[in-house]
Structures are given as structure tokens and as C-alpha cells.
């Protein structure tokens, strides 16, 4: 394939807090190609949002520090890009939607005004054209009566409608990458289904890459091409979606998939459980972040951080034991 759109290269993000240094990201690497929908899954605190915010330069510094790593956007390192240029990329080439649309919509302006503004910041067109385009965008995301609703204020919309408006706004400047941080976590399942459908449809239609952040394996299974799993501030596994679900290679991914109850496989059997709880990032484990909870742990895991290796074509795994000849059979 040609040059990747986005390449996160061995990123570290730490926060200086009164509780000590929170090592939120500890060497994360991820690549996104044009037109791809990539899922980033992980539990709360694993570093998904910090990764996303770092791409856009939205992490407050201080308390954040970037000890190491690069975020290459079409070859340019965003971490060293001046703020002024970053602002142009943000909302233009890369846009973002958040879990709670209310926090990113301004309550004192109409939806139409906000979308038009967004369009006009990034391209020189008349207010009238911008308005027409806003209506078009709202129509694309399935907003009923877009020509009228455009004059409504955010509080007049329901949660699902607000999230649609956010998607419309995010897509209005024809971005090349859309980062969606838990876009449906605050919504009910039936509304989630609507939003995911619209997100996928509009992204594919406009050929926008999507980085979809979620903690729900079901959500990534439905619409992603590729999935990266995050644990303790690192990507621990990355694979095409079918491969990952069929054959997880990292013990955490493997355990997680077996521990979630599945509606289609109703059984009263006990669920597999991963003991303990996710690491506290101000005191992360020395070696593999999963070592304190891993049932396959060996001595080496406690002292040495495993590298993210290409186990098979397109299959990245971070575990000391994958290279053992019969280990994969154990996970099957």
C-alpha cells in the first residue's frame, strides 16, 4: 500500500500529577491507511482517549509530557507541528466526535450556525453555500427535516440526534480521518444501532478513514476492517477484524473474548474470568502490563516488556510467549 495516512510511532504520554507520574501511554504504535475503519478497543483507563487526543494535540501540557514518540500525519510529525498549523489540520483534515456531544456543541448557537462556521473556517465559501452544505450533511446522517432542524439549538435535540449533528459537523469539511471516541457509549442500543449504521455508511460513502474508539467488542466486530487492542497504555494486539475474533493471539484479548457473555451463545455455564483488575497507571507493572492477571505468565513477563512483533502478515502481537511453537494451540 502507499504511504499510510497516520502512523503513531512508539508514543509515550505521561502526566505529572500530585499522585505521581501517570504513565498513560507507554509505547503505543498504530497505523491507519486511507479509507480504513480501524477499531481501538480497551477498558477504561487503558489510554484510548489520550491516544486520540494526542493526535489532535488536545492533551493539556502540562500536566502531560511527551517523553518519546512521533505521530506522523502523511509524513509530518504532529507532535512538533506548531499550534497554528495544527489548528488547521484539526477539524479540517482530521476531525473528532466525542462520547458526550453536549460537551462539544455550543449551547448558545443553532446547530446550523455551528456546522456552517466549521465549514467556513476551513474553506472560503459564502454563508449561503455553507448553509446549504450543512443541510446536505444533516441529511446524510439521517436527520429528519434537516432544512428546519438546522435552526434548532443543541438542547432541543435528543442524545441520538445530537450525535448525528456531531457526525455531520465532523464530516462537513471533508476530513481524511475521523476519530470517534466512544461515540455510542452514552446511547441506548437501538440508538447505537442507528448511529453506527450512519457512521459506517457516511464514512464509506465519503471515503473517510475512521479511528473508532470503544470498549465494546461487539461494536468493532460490526463495522471495523482492522482492530487494535489496547491494554495498560500499549497496543497489545492488532489484526484484521475476522482474524482477531477467530483467533486472538494475546492472552488478554483471548481472555476478554471468552469472558464476555454472548447473547447468541446462551449458556448457563460459568464465564471465563480474568482475575484482578486493570493496572493502575501511576504504578504500572514492570514487565508485561498484563502479567499480574495472565494465566500463562512466565518469569520473564514480570521483568521484561514484550515487543510488538509481526506474528503473521498483518498480525501484530505483544506477548513473550507467542513465539513458542505450541503456545497458539493452547489459546485455540
Amino acid at each position: 500500500m502507499s504511504q499510510p495516512l497516520l502512523h503513531i510511532d512508539d508514543l509515550y504520554v505521561h502526566f505529572n500529577t500530585s499522585d505521581g507520574v501517570v504513565q498513560a501511554i507507554n509505547g503505543a504504535s498504530l497505523t491507519l491507511n486511507p479509507g480504513e475503519i480501524v477499531g481501538l478497543v480497551g477498558e477504561s483507563g487503558s489510554g484510548k482517549s489520550v491516544t486520540a487526543m494526542s493526535i489532535l494535540g488536545l492533551v493539556p501540557k502540562p500536566p502531560a509530557i511527551y517523553p518519546k514518540g512521533r505521530i506522523l500525519w502523511k509524513g509530518i510529525d504532529l507532535l512538533t507541528t506548531p499550534d497554528r498549523e495544527l489548528r488547521e489540520i484539526r477539524g479540517g483534515e482530521i476531525s473528532m466526535i466525542f462520547q458526550d456531544p453536549m460537551t462539544s456543541l455550543n449551547p448558545v448557537y443553532t446547530i446550523g450556525h455551528q456546522i456552517s462556521e466549521m465549514i467556513r473556517v476551513h474553506s472560503r465559501i459564502s454563508a449561503k453555500t455553507a448553509k446549504l452544505r450543512s443541510i446536505e450533511m444533516l441529511d446524510l446522517v439521517g436527520m429528519p427535516n434537516p432544512a428546519q432542524r438546522i435552526d434548532d439549538y443543541p438542547h432541543q435535540f435528543s442524545g441520538g440526534m445530537r450525535q448525528r449533528a456531531m457526525i455531520a459537523m465532523a464530516l462537513s469539511c471533508s476530513p481524511e480521518l475521523l476519530i470517534a471516541d466512544e461515540p455510542t457509549t452514552a446511547l441506548d442500543v437501538t440508538i447505537q444501532a442507528q448511529i453506527l449504521e450512519i457512521l459506517e455508511k457516511s464514512a464509506r460513502e465519503l471515503n473517510v478513514s475512521v479511528l473508532l474508539i470503544t470498549h465494546d467488542l461487539g461494536v468493532v466486530a460490526g463495522i471495523c476492517d482492522r482492530v487494535a487492542v489496547m491494554y495498560g497504555g500499549r497496543i497489545v494486539e492488532e489484526a484484521p477484524v475476522d482474524d482477531l475474533f477467530e483467533r486472538p493471539l494475546m492472552p488478554y484479548t483471548w481472555g476478554l473474548m471468552r469472558s464476555i457473555p454472548q447473547m447468541d451463545k446462551v449458556s448457563t455455564k460459568r464465564l471465563y474470568t480474568i482475575p484482578g483488575s486493570p493496572p493502575v497507571m501511576s504504578r504500572p507493572p514492570k514487565g508485561c502490563a498484563f502479567a499480574p492477571r495472565c494465566e500463562f505468565v512466565i518469569d520473564r513477563c514480570h521483568t521484561e516488556v514484550p515487543q510488538l512483533i509481526e506474528y503473521a502478515p498483518h498480525r501484530m502481537v505483544r506477548c513473550h510467549r507467542v513465539s513458542e511453537p505450541d503456545f497458539i494451540a493452547v489459546l485455540a
Binding site: 482475575p275 484482578g276 483488575s277 493502575v280 504504578r283 499480574p292
Partner: peptide, 8 residues
């Protein structure tokens, strides 16, 4: 359980 060890 190792997770308790972290607790002050």
C-alpha cells in the same frame, strides 16, 4: 491477590 499490594 497482587492487586491489593498496590493499595496504600
Amino acid at each position: 491477590m497482587s492487586e491489593f499490594e498496590q493499595i496504600p
